[in-house]
Design a protein around this nucleic acid. Sequence first.
DNA 1: CCGGCAAATTGACGAAGTGTCATGGCCGGG
DNA 2: CCCGGCCATGACACTTCGTCAATTTGCCGG
Lengths: 226, 226
Amino acid sequence: MDATPMKNGLPRAAASGKREQTKIQNRQLILDAARQVFADLGYGAATVRDIIRATPLASGTFYNYFKSKEEVYQAIRDEVALAIRPRLHEERAKATTVEEFITCSFRTFFEYVSDDRLNFRTIRHSADNTRMRVDTPEVIAGFEELRADIETAIAAGLFPPVDPDFLMAAIVGVAFEVAERMLWRQPHDPAAAADFAANLFLGGVRALPLAQRPDVPTAEVTSDAA
Amino acid sequence: MDATPMKNGLPRAAASGKREQTKIQNRQLILDAARQVFADLGYGAATVRDIIRATPLASGTFYNYFKSKEEVYQAIRDEVALAIRPRLHEERAKATTVEEFITCSFRTFFEYVSDDRLNFRTIRHSADNTRMRVDTPEVIAGFEELRADIETAIAAGLFPPVDPDFLMAAIVGVAFEVAERMLWRQPHDPAAAADFAANLFLGGVRALPLAQRPDVPTAEVTSDAA
DNA sequence: CCGGCAAATTGACGAAGTGTCATGGCCGGG
DNA sequence: CCCGGCCATGACACTTCGTCAATTTGCCGG
């Protein structure tokens, strides 16, 4: 089969018939348009028509690829989840101490968010002044993976036998909430955010690094561009 | 009627003309219907028409009271925020040690959530499997108040001079995320949740109470009724 | 008790969005 | 070269949106 991309079929890696290609392309067209529209109008105000209008396609075509606005949103969100999940899992698997487990997790997460701030922001703002967080199944699976890793770590004697469910929740809560503040600041400093979070989990408030607050400009959501 | 509520007016406490009364009543009618509809269909799927249909009123009337679905949602959400904010602020103001500050905050919050789980749940679920968090201006004001209280506490030497912005974010994140897991469990145990959160902030993971996990039934969102 | 005014309710309306489907164009295999 | 099937298309039937002129309803002075 190899030396013949010819007839038969058995798509090599990704089948490259013209048909397959436009299908992939159209999907990407829609996803890109959606990202733009969500950023411009906010998720809440955006409509399927707005998305399709930002595209050379016809309205009916949209529904060949996604069931609804919600589903495009999930796809975008899942891209992020799928990109970051393996990294986090790997970092945690390597950890041999609590310190490593916690520190590496937060550093990886904050660095990713900082790099991908466009997606992160776009996805979190529904309309002016109201932020939104929608946890898709894929994202929730990421949470569960974290909990499983915690349970493993406890079994290995790495962690004290705390409540893995609550601990997972606490990590997730801090990660998302602190990530947002981090993005409000200029310049973004994922290392500082990670230090803060890691120290909090390792030793509580008393162990926190002293304030360095790079004068958060009380900036409303808007200021990033710079 | 009786002893001449006669002419003039000067509304006693809350004006009780028939006019005023129906206005209050209609507003409440809409809010109650909205709560029900949001619970039934999820916030995302609900429409203004659905809400008004669950009411004896006409569609146009809705807009005399609220600008949009979003605004009803905010009103419901703000009821909660307005109820809990003063309590939290008061608790924090009384604190004379870090322990008190942290412990009382979390206990108050989790107890409130446990009591008001209906609103909390209703408001957090957009559709099956996707949770949502919308922070209205009123809620955000609550966050800012927390930050201000932290700054005050630092000034008073009660807290080490940590980054108040990040600390506020961490507290908020843990509070919301752990609250949700708490509600998944049977029975609800706000005290345990508060212990967990408080110990985390006071001493880090190593200070956490040992697992007691009342066998969380892997319950999907649904199970509460009991 | 009446008349009239203002305030609030009503439901119909035009604009726009939703998801579907018959149609037709185009790719790919024979 | 031709045909079968896949998929893009955009019109369609239906729903929702927010508005507004007409109407009802409570309020007040006479």
